[in-house]
């Protein structure tokens, strides 16, 4: 009898911790009818997030370049480091939007890849501003392609996302582009006859310093 009890006790001792050691809560079923985003729209949004991340890394490389001792343009460096953080924030805003719409339940890990930025050096401040303007133009173009993918799905015109992208993102893009174009133009005019002094002064202006 004792042996049987011991065997039962031993069995329980072995079994209970195994069956009890569950470290997570089982997933639950929630109705999915509210999740309305379509495949092509979702795909283009995901690519857009990677585009914004890529732009953030390219801006970091610009910031790094203008921080160099031999280049010494802290104002440009600040402008580009700030732009890098802004691009990262754009990526986060797009992610938050996807989450609001019931997305990113799976395939989250593959959303972002980190690659070293393509370009590492710039001839001058104007060169970098014009490159930045070109980059922003590309980003604007790709946001437009997301809009097209999301409004032209035959099953579902995603009005709300299209409105969000048009109202918030395109607005910011156009303002940003105008700002970069204005800066490039002012700087280029200053360089006309006084190239190194012009860039020096403009750099301090970017730093918020009055000379």
């Amino acid at each position: 009898m004792k042996a049987v009890l011991f065997a039962v006790a031993a069995l329980l001792a072995v079994c209970i911790p195994i069956s009890a050691k569950q470290c997570n809560v089982n997933p639950v079923n929630i109705p999915k009818g509210w999740i309305t985003m379509q495949q092509s729209c979702r795909g283009s949004m995901r690519r857009q997030i990677q585009t914004e991340v890529g732009a953030s890394l390219q801006y970091l490389a610009m910031g790094a370049h203008f921080s160099r001792d031999g280049i010494n343009r802290p104002g440009f460096a600040k402008l580009f480091f700030d732009a890098a953080s802004e691009e990262r924030e754009h990526a986060m805003k797009l992610i938050d939007y996807l989450l609001m719409r019931g997305e990113l339940e799976t395939d989250v890990t593959s959303l972002i890849q980190i690659r070293a930025p393509e370009r590492k050096s710039w001839e001058s401040g104007v060169d970098a501003l014009e490159h930045a303007l070109k980059m922003e133009t590309e980003v604007t173009k790709s946001i437009r392609s997301v809009i097209i993918a999301c409004e032209s799905d035959p099953k579902f015109n995603d009005y709300h996302l299209v409105d969000y992208l048009t109202g918030e993102f395109l607005e910011e893009q156009y303002k940003g582009q105008r700002d970069l174009a204005g800066k490039a133009s002012t700087l280029k005019k200053m360089l006309d006859r006084h190239s190194s002094l012009g860039e020096f002064l403009f750099d301090k202006k970017l730093l918020g310093m009055d000379i």
Binding site: L104, E105, L111
Partner: peptide, 12 residues
């Protein structure tokens, strides 16, 4: 970490 933060903010 940003992706982890995103994952923990999905409806599930």
């Amino acid at each position: 970490y940003l992706l982890s933060a995103s994952y923990y903010n999905n409806y599930q």
